[in-house]
């Protein structure tokens, strides 16, 4: 992988992480932990992998990204703004009355949001629908979807997983944000989903396991996934919840709370 590309993406990922901190701090609520754990995946998608035109958010041939774990809205909003779908200045309106940046993504209000989400477990089914439509319309766009590991406890995820394989949706690539934490504690303790990679394999998916914070690995995994014919691909991304902010890393307390002023300053300094 080209080192310049990686350096550019790493810089972008840092900017996105700073946005996540500033936005949730300004909102006084929100979900930094799961936004930070997926920041590298989302950065790679929006700044390297996906075919997009911010000027034409409804361009029929665009690649699609569905944020199934909708509580990570800040990472999506930041990527969309940094990519030019709207002004970055709007980011601090997150969760405020009248804002297009709703607490959980609202596709009707914000350009670039492909699917409204927030009620966990529903994104893969929607992504399947988009992938099926792509096949029907003979369009070559790809559909990406990001699923949480806690979210994977929802039965609907597995109903959808079965359908993606059944319909041979090789235009669909899913990422699992395997950060090991949910709200009530470690996923292994609350309700284990392990061995999760084997489960996806058993459901008929091509499965890769990567370091979800290594941009080179993320990009290579998608390149390999695109070569798979006849079925959907899962990229299990090993991640750290709260990645990039020392006191948030691997700490379940930072799932759904905003940093105060002091914490915000410390976090932004670490991400400088």
């Amino acid at each position: 992988m080209d080192q310049e590309v990686i350096a550019r993406l790493e810089k972008k990922a840092r900017e996105i992480r700073r946005d996540i901190i500033s936005m949730t701090a300004a909102a006084g609520s929100g979900h930094p932990g799961g936004s930070l754990s997926s920041a590298d995946i989302v950065t790679a998608l929006y700044f390297q992998i996906m075919r997009l035109d911010p000027k034409r958010p409804d361009w029929p041939d665009r690649d699609r990204f569905v944020l199934s774990k909708g509580h990570a809205a800040p990472v999506l909003y930041s990527a969309l703004a940094e990519r030019g779908f709207f002004q970055t200045g709007e980011l601090i309106t997150l969760r405020k009355l009248g804002s297009r940046l709703q607490g959980h993504p609202d596709m009707k209000s914000l350009p670039g949001v492909e699917m409204s989400s927030g009620s966990l477990g529903q994104g893969l089914a929607a992504a399947n629908g988009m992938a099926l439509a792509g096949k029907l319309d003979h369009r070559d766009y790809r559909v990406f979807v990001l699923i949480g590991d806690g979210e994977s406890q929802e039965g609907m995820v597995w109903e959808a997983a079965m359908a993606s394989a059944h319909y041979k949706l090789d235009n669909l690539t899913a990422f699992l944000d395997h950060n090991g934490l949910q709200i009530d504690g470690p996923v292994r303790e609350v309700m284990s989903v392990e061995p999760v990679a084997d489960k996806w394999k058993a459901f008929g998916w091509d499965v890769q396991i990567i370091d979800g914070h290594d941009l080179g690995q993320i990009i290579n995994a998608v390149v390999k996934a695109k070569e798979v014919k006849g079925g959907p691909q899962m990229i299990v991304a090993e991640t750290v919840k709260g990645k990039g902010v020392s006191f948030m890393e691997n700490n379940v307390d930072w799932h759904g709370k905003a940093p105060n002023q002091q914490e915000t300053e410390k976090a932004l300094a670490e991400l400088a």
Binding site: L120, G121, G150, E151, Q153, E154, G155, Q182, I183, D184, V187, V190, M191
Partner: peptide, 26 residues
């Protein structure tokens, strides 16, 4: 379903762990 801290069933979970079941997000 993974919201014990928000719904406040955590109080019961701490006192009676054997009679509390976290079903995860399901």
């Amino acid at each position: 379903a993974d919201l014990a801290k928000s719904t406040k069933t955590i109080d019961f979970a701490k006192k009676f762990p054997s009679r509390f079941f976290d079903m995860g997000v399901a």
